[in-house]
Simulated assay, not measured.
Amino acid sequence: MRRWLTRWFPVRSLDHVGAGAYGLIGATVISADSIASTIAPTHAAAIRWTLLYEHSQVGSSRGGGGRDSTLHPFASGWRGESIVLRAACGRTIGVALGDARLRAPIDPADGTPLGTSPASSATYGALVSRAPAGSGTVFVREHGIQAGQTVRLHAWLEPVGSTGGYRDAASPTTVQFRATDVTLEDDLRD
């Protein structure tokens, strides 16, 4: 199937993907939870972080004239370079996280002030200079992708050639497909 056509009609299973196709695959994270959160006592296979600044503005005169405060993102990225997923058919997918997008239910007012933990200050402190001049408090938001969690993967999927080693073939985490142009969806309620 042509690449543009699979974008409109993504495959839902890896069973018959030979040369590459866009896929919409439900999969389970099988990478180990080896990355520690800087703001909570948890670990994850990968963490999507976002730095936000607080912007306060005076409310409208009709609304009582109070101050309204909102959080605006100014920097984001991943902690962790890649994760491995297992599709329902048993095949594994390697996902490089560098340019990956994450769709997840996030409360727009959610954020932890950056200075509340030494780990968050050490990890993200150098990025604070990217906040706009005159911005208020800087906050951090972390969203972990954990082992055993089910996610929906939107990506271009290509089979990975065998390495020829018998040990690789026997490993339960051997990557059989490579994903590019990735969007991970963490909200599977619909």
Score class of each variant (00 low, 15 high):
L14G: 01
W49I: 11
I93S: 07
R189N: 09
M1K: 02
R7H: 08
L24F: 06
G111I: 04
S121D: 00
R12G: 11
D187R: 04
T112K: 06
A131S: 11
A45M: 12
A44Q: 07
T173N: 13
R141F: 04
D190G: 12
I35S: 03
A122T: 11
A147M: 13
A96R: 14
T42R: 09
T163I: 04
D68L: 07
E54C: 05
S162E: 15
S171Y: 03
L127Q: 14
V84M: 13
R167D: 12
R101S: 13
A100H: 10
R103K: 11
V29M: 14
T42P: 05
R130T: 09
G161P: 02
P159L: 03
G80W: 03
H143T: 15
L184Y: 05
R12S: 15
T183D: 08
E158P: 01
A155K: 10
L5T: 02
V140G: 09
D110S: 08
C89V: 11
T6P: 04
D168F: 08
P132Q: 05
A45Y: 10
W78K: 07
G59Y: 01
D168A: 15
F139T: 00
D99S: 15
G26N: 13
L51P: 12
E158C: 09
G164S: 06
G148E: 09
D107M: 02
